[in-house]
Design a protein around this nucleic acid. Structure first.
Lengths: 148, 148
DNA sequence: GTCATTTACATAGCAAGCTATGTAATATTG
DNA sequence: CAATATTACATAGCTTGCTATGTAAATGAC
């Protein structure tokens, strides 16, 4: 009489998005691992390639990542020779994050690798479908940001 | 003369999918935490609510999760009183996974919570857009599965 | 100007993903 | 049937996300 209302993973945006995100992460790990990078570095690197010398607070504001997560990621990046942290002159609480020469040199190869992963993971979709997926995903995120 | 070809996070399916997946995970944690569940339990629970007494290998095949990840998740679920593991009669290498009464009782509340999170995170999208997001995401995943 | 509050960051500890490797039981092979 | 290979699972150790909490510096209140 009534439709089957069980929860179906193949109809759940949350379930599917988690799965697709893991596929992207696997692909990115494979492609940027040889460069000495891991997926968690990527967000911070993108911001710093654009604007070097940001503070941890700046990065957090741009990336929707928790402060503690960023602090730990920056620790690993410093350990791996991608950044150095220098105290801000005006405010001793603030650490400014500067890319090393090594990290600057990885800009081209790393973003090319990321683009390749995007193409690879979305091989099953047409150009229009890929554009739609990007637009819808961005729209969902933006709506949440707007309302808080 | 030429378009700016920098990698843009707002145009990257991988970047955006990772972000959206984190938003789903945060929402799910908030909603199912009070039930004594966490997001990582959900995939295994969905399969076991459907078919109790699966083996770890069965779960892995259904979920595209690595064997070691599943073993650790099952350890936590056992610790938290959601499952028990019993040796298979025919093959002593095999552990069959059985839901506890507690876990069976959570079927309704947990799937309702997950549905609520899906609705909540996608408030910015129309019904048609939500359906399109689900379809595109599923299609991308399916294409990768098909080719291996 | 001192005391309380806020800010910026660090640390501890857990979840859940991964790869690599170990181990016991079963299956296969000569 | 003994030796080898394979299978099913466990364990170690890493990354990256989270919450909760600690700490030093700067700011604000009186």
């Amino acid at each position: 009489m009534y439709a089957d209302m069980r929860f179906r993973k193949t109809q759940s945006a949350g379930y599917l998005t988690n799965h697709l995100a893991r596929l992207f992460a696997r692909g990115l790990t494979a492609r940027i691992g040889p460069l000495g990078l891991s997926p968690g570095n990527f967000p911070a690197l993108l911001e710093l390639w654009e604007t070097d010398g940001l503070t941890q607070k700046d990065l957090i504001a741009r990336l929707d990542i928790e402060q503690a997560t960023m602090a730990n990621t920056l620790n690993r990046m410093e350990r791996d020779g991608l950044i150095i942290r220098r105290k801000d002159q005006a405010d001793a609480r603030v650490q400014r994050i500067w890319l090393t020469e090594k990290a600057r040199a990885l800009h081209g190869p790393a973003t090319e690798a990321a683009s390749a992963v995007n193409a690879e993971i979305l091989t099953g979709l047409s150009d229009e479908e890929r554009a739609a997926l990007v637009t819808l995903t961005r729209k969902a995120i933006a709506a949440l940001r707007a309302q808080g």
